[in-house]
Computed example of a mutant assay.
Amino acid sequence: MSNRWNPSVTVAAVIERDGRYLLVEEETPEGLRLNNPAGHLEPGESPLEGCVREALEETTHRFTPTHLLGVYLSRFQRQRPGEAAQDITYLRFAYTGELGETVAGRVLDTGILRTLWLTPDEVRASQDRHRSPLVLRCMEDHLRGQRHPLDAVYTDPSVFQP
């Protein structure tokens, strides 16, 4: 029997306004970290839908994607005392777009302490606190104008069926 490799699929919103990028400060097993509004893709949703949902959950704001920023692959290794080492590969679909209004009554998702608007230099200077190296890579790709059409990622209707 062979072991099949199963990367963790994540989605991220890369949001810029007035020269600043929206990040979230979140509690992680490694301590407080900075990340894009991001999370795991859930069953029955497209990457685009997952990104909209995660942005809302982690910022309390509506998010309208306008472009696929890119598809990224990264690897993370975690070793907790007394536990087997974890070797996780993340496949990230990152979208950029417009941040909309706050949804009344929404609160930040569990583990999200606050949102922050940081300049590119502040994001670069905080690399040691990033949840993933993809936080910086996505910002740099956005700054250099990388954009792909939303339909570059196709979701077959079978995904939405039970």
Rank of each mutant, 00 (worst) to 15 (best):
M1Q: 14
S2K: 15
S2F: 14
N3R: 14
R4C: 11
R4Q: 14
S8K: 13
V9Q: 11
V9F: 10
A12P: 05
E16N: 01
R17Q: 12
Y21P: 08
E25L: 06
E25K: 08
E26K: 11
E27C: 08
T28R: 05
N35S: 07
N36Y: 15
N36Q: 13
P37V: 03
A38R: 03
G39I: 06
L41A: 01
E42R: 14
G44E: 07
E45P: 05
L48Y: 01
V52S: 00
R53H: 05
A55T: 10
L56K: 13
T60E: 05
R62A: 15
R62P: 14
F63G: 00
T64S: 13
T64V: 12
H67Y: 03
L68V: 01
G70P: 02
G70F: 01
G70W: 04
G70Q: 00
V71D: 07
L73F: 12
L73C: 12
R75H: 10
R75D: 08
R78Q: 13
Q79N: 12
R80L: 15
P81H: 13
G82N: 00
A85Y: 06
I88N: 09
Y90G: 01
Y90V: 05
A94C: 06
Y95E: 00
E101H: 12
D109H: 14
D109C: 11
T110Y: 12
P120Q: 01
D121P: 03
D121C: 06
D121K: 08
D121T: 10
E122D: 11
H130R: 01
H130D: 02
R131I: 15
R131C: 14
R131W: 13
R131H: 13
P133S: 05
L136R: 07
R137K: 13
M139V: 09
M139F: 03
E140H: 07
D141N: 06
R144K: 14
R144S: 14
R147Q: 03
H148G: 05
P149Y: 03
L150M: 02
L150N: 06
D151E: 10
D151M: 06
Y154L: 10
T155N: 00
D156S: 12
D156E: 07
S158K: 13
V159A: 11
V159W: 09
V159S: 06
P162E: 15
P162K: 15
